[in-house]
Amino acid sequence: MGSVRTNRYSIVSSEEDGMKLATMAVANGFGNGKSKVHTRQQCRSRFVKKDGHCNVQFINVGEKGQRYLADIFTTCVDIRWRWMLVIFCLAFVLSWLFFGCVFWLIALLHGDLDTDYKDDDDKSKVSKACVSEVNSFTAAFLFSIETQTTIGYGFRCVTDECPIAVFMVVFQSIVGCIIDAFIIGAVMAKMAKPKKRNETLVFSHNAVIAMRDGKLCLMWRVGNLRKSHLVEAHVRAQLLKSRITSEGEYIPLDQIDINVGFDSGIDRIFLVSPITIVHEIDEDSPLYDLSKQDIDNADFEIVVILEGMVEATAMTTQCRSSYLANEILWGHRYEPVLFEEKHYYKVDYSRFHKTYEVPNTPLCSARDLAEKKYILSNANSFCYENEVALTSKEEEEDSENGVPESTSTDSPPGIDLHNQASVPLEPRPLRRESEIGSRR
């Protein structure tokens, strides 16, 4: 089982795998120059863009038009607004034209077009017409509009002379109601789609790998820009990579689940303020055997998904993003964004995407760390350097704002901070800030 798991979770494809794949392509008759073999020097295209759209195009789909027309309502909801407006206008105009032609044909076959009612006051002739005051196609078209929109100006009306005319008036009224219901329903469904809710759900630009509770963890940050909550919010993550099976089958995008606390339930989050999602790199993680150097040379993509129900409509929305291997910062942490004021908490989104480097973060893999092949620094050293990194950030910001350097908390000259780390230190809580992250 261990060997199978290692093969499945191998992220960085070796040169031997690339040569094996190329040999397979030639042997199977696919070596026509169009096949692409992804190596370390040639990274694959992003499968999920940063804005959440999937970078996929469908080609050679059989009976595409028929399949889309069979699900016309979903098609109308998914198309762009400009095409929705075109369909909206065409549906009414074509129905008016169709029934206008029908009423014109009825008048033509009944002989109503030969009668001039402007110079004739004989009401008996008017009563013999199928539709009064309809003696041309324009008049028939206007009567069709008046019937379907129930305008009723009063000059044109159907008589009991022709039952077919009466039937067409009733039929057009029913068709008009159906068109109204369909168009209004599609427009309302399109307006109520929770897709735009994703514009106020954000992911951090970069993911980070750092120590948390004595273990290497992959972390990324999510935030909600609205005050309205995302009900039943939960997160998922998958690692996408290519691999070759033991039988020699090439899988271009193998999807591997990344555990973010599904078993323990901590994948469900209360997204009021930005939260750091934590994936513990343990023996079940696809990143277990990867060191910093392996991450730098790897070719994979981590897709992160945030799902929840919109509070206003109770409709489920899904926000997506992805991180390539070069977008994962090893040995970094996110800057705090949640600050405790006197009577409330304040979230500073200008710090949302910012990170700071944490010294002495192990550069080895989580496996080597678990097997004690890498000796961690003293816990006080880690905490102290973590505090120094934050303090230096604040000093830089104070210097930019014009604060005198004498007010900063610099260490005395001639003292090495790293050498001082081995000395037991008193706890130094942050002056006014605390970061709330997901705790395992």
Rank of each mutant, 00 (worst) to 15 (best):
347 V>R: 00
354 K>E: 11
202 V>L: 09
361 T>E: 05
306 L>C: 04
45 S>K: 09
211 M>Q: 15
429 P>I: 13
225 L>T: 14
367 R>F: 00
18 G>Q: 07
114 D>Y: 10
56 V>G: 05
104 W>V: 10
374 Y>G: 14
9 Y>H: 11
261 G>C: 13
70 A>K: 15
111 G>C: 02
79 I>F: 10
92 F>W: 10
357 E>T: 05
23 T>A: 10
85 L>I: 13
344 Y>G: 10
49 K>G: 08
421 A>W: 05
201 L>I: 12
15 E>Y: 03
127 S>Y: 08
181 A>I: 15
431 R>C: 13
349 Y>I: 06
41 Q>L: 06
241 K>V: 07
405 E>G: 12
51 D>C: 05
6 T>F: 05
33 G>C: 11
234 H>V: 09
421 A>H: 13
186 A>W: 11
88 F>Y: 08
75 T>E: 07
329 L>F: 04
236 R>F: 04
153 Y>C: 08
358 V>C: 08
210 A>H: 07
319 C>M: 07
379 A>T: 13
185 G>Y: 04
19 M>V: 11
41 Q>G: 12
181 A>H: 11
316 T>F: 08
334 Y>A: 02
401 N>W: 06
381 S>E: 10
143 F>K: 01
62 G>W: 06
151 I>V: 10
38 H>Y: 05
173 S>Q: 04
18 G>K: 04
107 A>H: 01
258 I>E: 00
132 S>W: 02
297 N>A: 12
237 A>Q: 00
284 D>K: 15
135 N>I: 04
111 G>W: 02
136 S>N: 09
283 E>N: 10
167 F>T: 15
300 F>T: 01
37 V>T: 12
374 Y>W: 08
178 I>L: 15
387 E>G: 02
42 Q>K: 07
295 I>S: 00
147 T>L: 02
3 S>F: 02
380 N>I: 05
323 Y>W: 09
130 C>Y: 02
117 Y>N: 01
91 A>P: 02
209 I>V: 12
383 C>P: 02
34 K>C: 10
324 L>V: 08
242 S>L: 14
39 T>Q: 10
260 V>D: 01
427 P>A: 14
339 F>D: 14
352 F>M: 09
87 I>K: 15
175 V>Y: 15
279 H>P: 00
403 V>G: 13
228 S>D: 11
259 N>E: 10
19 M>N: 09
198 N>G: 14
310 V>R: 10
290 L>F: 10
426 E>I: 05
144 S>F: 01
24 M>A: 13
17 D>W: 03
141 F>Y: 12
235 V>E: 00
377 S>A: 12
369 L>F: 10
239 L>G: 00
385 E>V: 06
422 S>R: 07
394 E>S: 14
200 T>N: 10
250 Y>Q: 15
152 G>R: 03
13 S>Q: 10
267 D>K: 06
402 G>R: 08
183 I>L: 13
375 I>D: 14
217 C>A: 14
91 A>Q: 13
389 A>I: 15
323 Y>A: 00
127 S>K: 11
111 G>L: 03
49 K>W: 03
63 E>K: 15
48 V>G: 00
75 T>F: 13
56 V>H: 10
251 I>P: 15
249 E>M: 08
252 P>V: 14
162 C>S: 01
102 V>D: 00
145 I>T: 05
420 Q>A: 10
288 Y>K: 00
231 V>W: 13
14 S>N: 07
142 L>K: 03
192 A>Q: 09
354 K>H: 12
59 I>N: 15
390 L>A: 14
313 T>F: 07
395 E>S: 09
253 L>W: 12
90 L>N: 15
207 A>I: 00
429 P>N: 10
370 A>S: 04
381 S>F: 05
179 I>W: 09
387 E>D: 12
112 D>H: 01
285 S>R: 00
174 I>N: 03
194 P>Q: 12
147 T>P: 01
333 R>A: 15
240 L>M: 05
106 I>A: 02
373 K>P: 10
83 W>A: 03
413 P>Q: 11
50 K>D: 03
87 I>F: 15
56 V>Y: 05
176 G>D: 05
229 H>K: 11
267 D>R: 07
326 N>V: 03
340 E>A: 05
248 G>W: 03
102 V>H: 03
182 F>L: 08
140 A>V: 02
143 F>T: 04
5 R>T: 15
269 I>W: 05
207 A>D: 00
100 G>T: 01
407 T>L: 07
54 C>Q: 09
285 S>A: 00
47 F>C: 13
418 H>L: 14
225 L>P: 04
124 S>V: 14
181 A>S: 14
393 K>N: 10
122 D>G: 00
133 E>A: 05
145 I>A: 09
189 A>R: 08
189 A>S: 14
156 R>F: 02
147 T>S: 02
296 D>Q: 09
256 I>C: 10
230 L>V: 10
361 T>D: 02
179 I>N: 14
93 V>G: 02
392 S>R: 11
246 S>W: 06
339 F>P: 02
381 S>C: 08
272 V>Q: 08
220 W>Y: 07
187 V>D: 00
301 E>V: 00
176 G>E: 03
348 D>P: 02
313 T>Q: 11
233 A>Q: 07
136 S>G: 14
154 G>C: 05
199 E>T: 10
110 H>D: 02
289 D>A: 10
217 C>S: 13
375 I>Y: 07
288 Y>G: 01
58 F>T: 15
285 S>I: 00
47 F>E: 02
282 D>R: 14
332 H>C: 10
274 P>V: 06
37 V>M: 07
274 P>H: 06
341 E>I: 05
227 K>H: 07
271 L>D: 05
380 N>A: 07
114 D>V: 12
